[in-house]
């Protein structure tokens, strides 16, 4: 009975998520190979060659990875720091409610907020000018639309931080971290040693697969880099959409090529996080390998 319901669940999951995704990738692959589309003239690898030789494509991949690693790296580090030092901060009281609010904020709203705060005409620029730190608003650094993606990183960091604070707070409570830390104390660890040698690495290990998936999510984000990114250095999703929506119809197959390449990279990374899922101490399948455990 349990087996049957598991197979039904797995079938529904595949039908609703995996199959539409695979169909989309399949269509994009056909388009990228010149096998479909308005201007298709039969099988060609020309679009793949053009993309793989394009500096803009590789730069966008590296830039997307950089933004994801820095923003999520900072969010995970700060969340771990707060939770291992003050594990009960977000368990009770008003903070336990307010911490959920940023999660309900759409990405585009966060992007506008960052734009208003950090752009050359934004709040921080005006404050710096009033304090005499800059000679004019134009002298304020390029935090938004700049080549280092500071605005994009800040927006993603602010969106990811509450998520990881909630995640680690819940994990601290449910994974018996308090008992582990007490065990470490009686073995001779100071509070700091117990926090950094036991709680933080144990929590990070447990969350590793989630961290990888969040990285992938940020790498593929669109609204925030669209509003806060620069013209010269684009994240991969912005580059893809621009090629797809240009007037030059010859660019469309390249957009599909980029989307296929990016999808393949994401699938490889996601699959490579399966060992990490196991490494984090979780099980995908129980011993009989039939029932999804978590």
């Amino acid at each position: 009975m349990q087996k049957t319901s598991t197979y039904i669940g797995l079938g529904l999951f595949l039908a609703l998520t995996a199959i539409p995704l695979l169909l989309g990738i399949g269509y994009a692959l056909l388009f990228s190979l010149g096998l479909t589309g308005i201007l298709s003239e039969g099988f060609t690898l020309e679009h793949w060659r053009a993309v793989l030789r394009s500096a803009a494509f590789w730069e966008s991949i590296v830039f997307s990875a950089y933004v994801a690693l820095v923003s999520i790296g900072m969010a995970v580090s700060l969340a771990l720091f707060v939770v291992v030092r003050r594990p009960h901060t977000f368990e009770k009281g008003p903070l336990s409610f307010f911490i959920y609010l940023p999660l309900a904020l759409p990405a585009i709203v966060m992007a506008f907020f960052i734009f208003q705060m950090m752009s050359k005409a934004g709040f921080l620029s005006r404050l710096a000018f009033q304090l005499g730190l800059t000679r004019s608003l134009g002298h304020f650094p390029d935090w938004v639309n700049g080549q280092y993606g500071i605005g994009i990183i800040t927006a993603h960091f602010l969106m990811a931080l509450p998520f990881f604070l909630i995640l680690y707070t819940q994990m601290y409570r449910h994974e018996g971290m308090r008992a582990l830390m007490q065990q470490a104390y009686t073995l001779g660890a100071t509070r700091r040693q117990a926090a950094w040698r036991v709680a933080a690495p144990a929590l990070f290990r447990r969350s590793f697969a989630t961290v990888v998936l969040y990285l992938l999510f940020v790498m593929g984000s669109y609204e925030i880099p669209l509003l806060l990114g620069s013209q010269s250095r684009q994240m991969v999703s912005v580059l893809t959409i621009q090629k797809l929506q240009r007037f030059n119809l010859d660019d469309i197959p390249q957009a599909y090529t980029i989307s296929v390449l990016y999808s393949m990279a994401v699938i490889v990374l996601a699959l490579s996080s399966l060992p990490a899922y196991k490494w984090s101490g979780r099980k995908l399948f129980n011993r009989s390998r039939t029932v999804l455990k978590e």
């Binding site: 582990l180 065990q183 470490a184 144990a202 990070f204 290990r205």
Partner: peptide, 8 residues
Amino acid sequence: QEPLLFPH
């Protein structure tokens, strides 16, 4: 009662 080995 639980061995409480450090999981990492």
